[in-house]
Design a protein around this nucleic acid. Structure first.
Length: 426
RNA sequence: GGAGAGGUGCCAGAGUGGUUGAAUGGGGCGGUCUCGAAAACCGUUGUCCCGCUUGCGGGACCGAGGGUUCGAAUCCCUCCCUCUCCGCCA
């Protein structure tokens, strides 16, 4: 959510931002209603002032034994007027809010302006794509032959877009989670969080999934709860409606959670194997920082996510998303894409975003600035560190051998209970 | 699921329908004292919104939302949450 004061003073900037993000918002109507509301507010507050003063006088008169009957009659009329005015202000306010929460965040000045992913900017790449002396297999075939992936039975149990890991596959999934959390805690100084996997509507609103993406969320209708689409939601909401101390910042959290997404509107896209699934595991990094530090923290955050792929020795590239490809709440976003030799293309395994104060304003997360004693909104950031399923894909496809076995990369071996190679006969 | 208790400021904890934005204590901040510190004492200490803007004036907020009233933290209704006991279950 943007600051209404900012919109009042910079309507053209906001309009331009909406356009570059392909997310229309009626700024003119917003500002007109806002002006009308403030005028009404001034009027009704004057009446309330009068009422407050009169009520005080009535109390005094009663205590003095005088009859305040006439004054009370007047105040009854005034009170009715106030009630009516309050009501119409509330109506106006709810329309204003509705428009306001639909205004996207403004892209940072370093973000390329462009309508879609074709305008994303290449930032850098890491690692060398492995050359195979044979034709590398795609993960689903490889996993099936090794008996570590069972997509067919997962579909029977639940439906398409779900995954069942088995034996060394399940162990590998668990090892990856464990490995990633350890790196972020021990080497990057994040604090581990294990949050609820189910959240309420307010939390989904706070991080910006609602109302825009409601159709992509699994909701638990009777309970009015939602399955989380990312740990970003519960972890960022930890400080909702709180005021932090300046010395507490930056706060850096890492959390493993499963993620649930309907993937509405993406039918037919990424249908191979488990490239796009409804439930996947992810290790997520979340930061709460001071505004003046957020862009440095953003760069550092990207490095933390990259580190995982570097340690696993999986080649990847980093893109800076164009304005039109960014999410509603983001001001700047990098994507990390791991190379999948079986599929012969890159897979997005991490999104590293700076939301500035957009989420913090929705969630009302502030900190007290020591120097001024004033409360300011924090900046929130998050990055996958990193998303499983697809890392699993890149890993087994990259480390596959001609005989169909998969070698476990060195960094992961301490987590694999002595398994150095996954073979079919095991 | 059944029975009770309760939700007030950074924390603890008062609060008769009318100078209560809120007693008191603790904490924080500033000061006196001290070589320094502790103790003691004095002062200060919520958030948001609107308007003119160094400052000031006004409004709102005592879990959330309604209602009664000239006036609600205080009375009534609905919802949410927390705690205790019983039942059930991991």
């Amino acid at each position: 959510m943007l600051d209404i004061h900012f919109i009042r003073e910079n309507p053209e900037v906001v309009k331009k931002a909406c356009k570059s993000k392909n997310m229309p918002a009626d700024i003119d109507t917003l500002l007109r209603l806002d002006g009308e509301k403030r005028e009404m507010l001034a009027q009704v507050e004057e009446k309330k002032h009068e009422r407050n003063a009169a009520s005080k006088r009535i109390g005094e008169m009663k205590r003095a034994g005088r009859d305040p009957g006439l004054l009370m009659d007047d105040m009854k009329k005034l009170s009715d007027e106030i009630k009516k005015a309050d009501l119409s202000i509330a109506e106006k306010e709810s329309v204003i809010q509705e428009i306001l929460i639909g205004v996207p965040n403004i892209p940072h000045k370093s973000v390329p302006v462009g309508a879609d992913a074709s305008k994303n900017a290449f930032v850098h790449e890491w690692g060398e794509k492995k050359r195979f002396s044979f034709k590398p297999k795609v993960h689903d075939k490889l996993g099936e032959e090794l008996d570590i992936l069972d997509l067919k039975r997962a579909a029977k149990i639940t439906g398409s877009g779900f995954v069942l890991f088995k034996g060394a596959g399940a162990l590998l999934e668990r090892a990856l989670i464990d490995f990633m959390i350890d790196i972020h805690v021990q080497e990057h100084g994040f604090i581990e969080i294990s949050p609820p996997f189910i959240v309420n509507r307010m939390s989904m609103f706070g991080t910006g999934q609602l109302p825009k993406l409601e159709e992509d969320m699994y909701d638990l209708e009777e309970a009015k709860y939602f399955l989380i689409p990312t740990a970003e939601v519960p972890v960022t909401n930890i400080f909702r409606d709180e005021i932090l101390q300046e010395d507490d910042l930056p706060v850096r959290y890492v959390a493993y959670t499963p993620c649930f997404r309907k993937e509405a509107g993406s039918y037919g896209k990424d249908t191979t194997g488990m490239t796009r699934v409804h439930q996947f595991d992810k290790v997520e990094l979340v930061k709460f920082v001071k505004p003046e530090e957020s862009y440095q923290e953003h760069e550092d955050l990207l490095k933390c996510s990259e580190k995982i792929l570097q340690k696993l020795d999986i080649p990847y590239r980093v893109l800076l998303l164009a304005s039109g490809d960014m999410s509603f709440a983001a001001a700047k976003c990098y994507d990390i894409e791991a190379w999948s030799p079986g599929l012969g293309r890159y897979l997005e395994v991490s999104s590293c975003s700076n939301f500035e104060d957009f989420q913090a304003r929705r969630m009302n997360i502030r900190f007290r600035r020591k120097k001024t004693g004033k409360n300011e909104f924090v900046h929130t950031l998050n990055s996958s560190g990193i998303a499983l399923a697809r890392t699993f894909i890149a890993l087994i496809e990259t480390y596959q051998n001609e005989d169909g076995s998969v070698t476990i990369p060195g960094a992961l071996r301490p987590y694999m209970k002595g398994v150095e190679k996954i073979t079919a006969d095991k």
